[in-house]
Design a protein around this nucleic acid. Structure first.
Length: 129
DNA sequence: ATTCTAACA
DNA sequence: TGTTAGTA
């Protein structure tokens, strides 16, 4: 199928589909007229790419990890690919670190907000009796 | 009508 | 990522 069909079937824009190829995530063949020809398996491939992207993995990593997953009943399922585990754990760690930092920022804000005398629109009016 | 490449108010 | 220009 050509790019237009794949775009409709996956809900991903043609622009993005070309970008995925540029990043090595998809490798469509070329027709005599230069048009990209995608395989039917690319429909699920795009789905997997979206999932991995949603997990925060960079395209450079996805390009490698993509070969370590297959489709099971429409679900992204991992295979025993050693390299993938390391990448996933690394990303897991980055997210945990990001959460820790943001939680600390939230505590600072909570402290400031709690120290404000009275604010308009506050749920519990304390200076009204 | 569709796709391609390159570029950016 | 969207959009657009000028093609094939």
């Amino acid at each position: 199928m050509r790019i237009g069909a794949l775009a409709r079937e996956t809900g991903v824009s043609e622009r993005l589909l070309r970008y995925y190829e540029e990043q090595g995530l998809l490798q469509p063949t070329r027709l005599a007229n230069g048009y990209r020809e995608y395989a039917r398996s690319d429909v699920t491939a795009v789905s997997h790419i979206r999932s991995l992207l949603a997990a925060g993995l960079p395209t450079t990593v996805i390009a490698q990890v993509l070969h370590c997953v297959h489709d099971d009943g429409g679900r992204l399922t991992p295979s025993a690919c050693p390299g993938m585990v390391q990448h996933l754990e690394r990303q897991r760690a980055r997210i945990a670190d990001a959460i820790a930092h943001m939680t600390a920022e939230q505590r600072v804000l909570d402290g400031l907000l709690a120290a404000i005398p009275s604010r308009p629109g506050e749920t519990k009016e304390t200076g009204r009796d």
